Structures are given as structure tokens and as C-alpha cells.
Amino acid sequence: MRKIGILFERQSDIMSNSDATEETHYHWRETEEVEAVATNLTALGYDVDLIGTLDNLLERWRQNQLPEFIWNLSVRTTSRNRTALAPAILEQLGIPYTGGDTTVKSLTLNKDFLKPVLQWRGILTPPWCRYGVGEEIVNLPLWKKCILKPACEGYSLGLQVWEVSTGLSELQNQVKQLHQQFQAAVLCEQFIPGREITVGVVGNDAPVFIGAVETVTTEGAVMQEQVLDLQAKRRGGFGKINVDLSLPELQKLKDVTLDLMQLFKPLDYATFDFRVSADNFSASNQAYLLDINADATLHPERSLAQIALQNGLSYRDLIEVILQTSLKRWN
């Protein structure tokens, strides 16, 4: 196997839709990410075909020009099935690919389905309620501060903060706005103040490596009450620092991540977002799983690449271990 095709959507692919806005469609792969993956695959001795969208892939199929293997970076937009489309089509075409399959991509994207699975597994996640499209909200949530977000989006799209002091009508207005923007159920989730930690892992049957970074303010302080919504991510002002998962207060994060890697395998690689509550962050503090990113970014300056570097792996090493992890399961 020498030829690898890369599936991805550019900004122009996503924003060509007349209804597209950055607030609802921010799903494209950054040019730096695609170029970094392609450049390092080439350096590893592979012929790289920048296929782009699923439409381009199907055109390759019609022309009988399919590659032997696909590096899947496709996430699409505006559908609760969007991340599952590429693996479903690739399975039908009989082409092996990197990353999770249709089932795991769909489950991890749809948080209203994921959360009951986490509860069944005995994994702590913030308490929540679900507001379906058109559902009347007649009662206030039990929590003073909540996160409102579409049930099947990523990159903090649509994420808003609601506080009980603003009242029921404001809650109804915010949820109605999200329903109109995303045409999807909305989760109302208790806000957990504390540390925000991302765990990254590569592997299926056993982890090739695992590590973590913590998001902190420009002063290096814990996030506590701050929220990483889309505006905050665009604005910047946050840093990432390495953290040691062997510390007693963080061991639970490692255990949860490895448990879910086994439950959901094959994933090949993923990141897991946690909030660790309380002020002194002792071993008794609670670690809440917020999200599983089965389509984690491979941008060389983002979390997974930084975690790999923490484990003594260059970016090229990261690309190689992901590829070898994926090839092993297909073989």
C-alpha cells in the first residue's frame, strides 16, 4: 500500500452553501492541518492524493481511480450523521481508512445519545436535560448555571451560558434560537467550574501513547468559571500546558479514557475533554467527561500534537503511529 487519499472539507466547500455562517458551519479543516498531514505522509514514503470532499471521492469511484487507503478528515455539516457519512461510504466502497467507524462517529457526535451510555458505563458526566425541537419548556433546570449547546455539534458551535437568575423566558428564548439555528435538540447541562483538561490517546487494543494538556488563561490560571465558547476560541488568550496523568487527582481521567477506548474501538486516535471540579483539586475531586472527539484535529499546534510531543513523539511520529495503528486493525 503506497497511495493514500485524504478526505477533508475546505472553508470554501463549507461556506459555499447560501445558508452557511461561521457560527453554525465552522467545520472545515484548516489548511495547515491538511498540509501537515499530507507533507508528513509524503515524507514517510507514501503517494498522497488530496481528494477533498466526499463528492470528489465518488467522482474518483466513477472514474475507477480510488486510492488504496483513505486518511479520513471529513466531518461535513448540518446533520447529526455528518461525521458518520465518510466511514459509511468508505465501507461500502471497500476502502480501509483512519479513525472511528460509522457507529462510533455517530454516537460520539450525538451527545444526547452518548451521555446515557456514559452513565451506563459508570462514567461521570455533568447532569443534563434535553430539549427537543418544538418542545415546550415549562420548568427551570435544577442548576444555577448551565451550558446550552446543540446536541450534535463540535468546536463549541452554539454553546451558550444560561444562569437561573435570568429566568424561564430567557431560557426559552436561548433554546428557541439554538433550535432555529441548528435544527437539532439542545442539551442543558450543569456548568462545572474547575480545571479543563484534554486527554489524547492513540491506539485500539492497547494505547500507543496517552497524555494530557490543560487549558489555562494567559496568566497560567485554572479556567474555573471561564467557558471555551466559539468566541473565546477565536479570540484566543488561552494556553495549553502539559499535565501528568499519573498524579492521584488525575488518574481517573486516564482510567476513563482507556475504558472508553476499549468500549468504542476502533478509534485509532481521539481526544477526551474533562472538567475537574473543586478548588484544591485533591484526589477526591470529581472528573466530569464533557466530550469525546473522535474527529480530533491533527493541526500541528493543537492538543493532540502537543500531547504527542510530551510523549517524545514529533509530529511526523504522530502521523506514523496513527497510520500504523489503523493499518494494524485493517490487516
Rank of each mutant, 00 (worst) to 15 (best):
F238T: 15
L258I: 11
K3C: 09
T102N: 04
G134K: 10
L313W: 01
C152R: 05
D291P: 10
M261P: 13
A305W: 03
L93A: 14
N72L: 14
S314P: 09
Q11K: 11
G122P: 05
K3V: 14
G312A: 13
R29K: 05
N110P: 04
N293H: 00
L148M: 11
Y155H: 13
L114M: 14
D101R: 15
L50V: 09
R234F: 12
L289I: 05
Q190P: 01
S277M: 00
Y97D: 04
S314I: 06
K254C: 15
K233T: 04
Y155W: 13
L118K: 11
R82K: 15
T103D: 11
T102I: 04
K105I: 10
S284L: 04
L7H: 03
G5E: 08
T215G: 12
F113H: 14
Q324Y: 03
Q310S: 11
E33I: 01
L230K: 12
T21Y: 01
T271A: 15
E136I: 14
N311E: 12
E301H: 01
D273P: 03
E23F: 09
T166Q: 00
L263N: 07
I197F: 04
Y26K: 07
R329Y: 03
Q231R: 00
I210S: 10
T102H: 12
R60F: 08
S282C: 07
A20L: 03
E35D: 15
A43P: 06
P96L: 11
D291V: 08
A270S: 14
I137N: 00
T297D: 09
P127I: 12
A38Y: 03
S326A: 06
D317R: 02
T21S: 06
R2A: 10
L247F: 06
L230F: 03
C152E: 05
V161C: 09
A184L: 00
K144H: 15
V227P: 07
K145L: 09
Q181A: 03
P87Q: 03
T31G: 09
G52K: 10
S16E: 12
R62K: 14
D244V: 04
V199E: 06
L159N: 02
L290N: 08
A38W: 00
V186W: 01
W120F: 06
P127W: 10
L228S: 02
K115E: 03
